[in-house]
Design a protein around this nucleic acid. Sequence first.
DNA 1: ATTAATCCTATCGATTTAATAGGAATTACA
DNA 2: TGTAATTCCTATTAAATCGATAGGATTAAT
Lengths: 137, 137
Amino acid sequence: MLSKKTKYGLKALTYIARSKDEIPVQVGEIAKSEQIPQKFLESILLTLRKAGFLGSKKGKHGGYYLRKEPSEILMTEVMRVLEGPIAMVPCVSLNFYEKCDDCVDEHACSVHKLMIQVRDSTLQVFRNTTLADLSSK
Amino acid sequence: MLSKKTKYGLKALTYIARSKDEIPVQVGEIAKSEQIPQKFLESILLTLRKAGFLGSKKGKHGGYYLRKEPSEILMTEVMRVLEGPIAMVPCVSLNFYEKCDDCVDEHACSVHKLMIQVRDSTLQVFRNTTLADLSSK
DNA sequence: ATTAATCCTATCGATTTAATAGGAATTACA
DNA sequence: TGTAATTCCTATTAAATCGATAGGATTAAT
């Protein structure tokens, strides 16, 4: 299940990408427009800023803006920051690999085999989708 | 993240599919072999039985057996029983659809668009995989 | 009868998630 | 210079979910 954090984060990024003006977009504006609890959204945008997707301007007339072109913001990267591993089990994760406690032979594990396929097909979607795709109507 | 319930369930189904004998497979045997807490596994196999994948025999020398050929047990069905919806958000779920509270226009929602793609690519894997594929080495 | 298995319900502890609270730091501008 | 508006940061909380356990009831073989 996609977390609200990720859902809100994607919506916010889309919102910012669509607002082409040079002036930063304020949290309050996004929260109102997208029906997101403002304080929660604040923390999400903070995460996205620290991850390098967003820049911010503080104080009056402050807000957030994209640091890259939408077409250069890949869903693989956004999803890993907001949602964590793309794989459904750590033992098939490319970026967050962990061995299973059980599972003597990873290679013989039926779950492993299946989840590699799921991971790859999901990755293919995320690798071929950028924020530009999301924000185009 | 894949739940332990689903992981254990898939492993157990694979185990039963691989044991070709006519005699039912006991929970204790699976639990020991696959390193799964026995009581937890009991409840999972019960779920799989109620869903029609497994039959059971009670009492001494009892256990579980498959009710269909492994090649007729689709991952779409197993995953929906064990893990629930395949989609990452209810608003793109085929079998468990729910409208979002926020989201005025589903059609214009960027998350919706993305998650439909993820759902479809995941479905493609599950639709093309049966228990026979999992249990083949 | 006794033993061994499934069946069933309830509960518990830990973790995660979603959200809230409260203010500190910074900036615009009157 | 002061006030309002905004981001920044940390801590806390309420609710939900998950993984596992407990304790037997029921059923069947020997």
